[in-house]
């Protein structure tokens, strides 16, 4: 099938029947009513919108802080082995009492 011809035919059909320019009754009144209506502010919607807007900056600050903390924290000194650590913890009260 000649697709070029088909396309031309379809376009010709579309050109031959332009869409209607009919306007619903008193449509301009409806728009004017919208334009002149007092502005009502939905506080919760505004709050929600601001919260959503704050998400990206908060995430960036959090990421930057994370990177900064990782970069500046020095590695902890080697901890004693588990056995030694338990012993130190258990006997620390005796040391305090002995003093």
């Amino acid at each position: 099938m000649d697709l070029e011809k088909l396309q031309q035919k379809l376009m010709a059909a579309a050109k031959a029947t332009p869409p209607s320019d009919q306007v619903p009754y008193a449509f301009e009144k409806r728009i004017m009513a919208r334009l002149t209506a007092p502005l009502t502010v939905d506080v919760w919607a505004v709050w929600g919108r601001w919260l959503w807007r704050a998400v990206a900056p908060c995430m960036s600050v959090m990421a930057a802080l994370g990177v900064w903390v990782l970069a500046t924290t020095r590695p902890e000194p080697e901890s004693p082995n588990l056995e030694q650590a338990i012993e130190n913890t258990l006997l620390s009260s005796d040391d305090v009492a002995g003093e």
């Binding site: 035919k9 379809l10 376009m11 059909a13 579309a14 031959a16 029947t17």
Partner: peptide, 8 residues
């Protein structure tokens, strides 16, 4: 042409 327009 209605059919053609519907196709378009």
């Amino acid at each position: 042409t209605d059919a053609a327009r519907a196709l378009v």
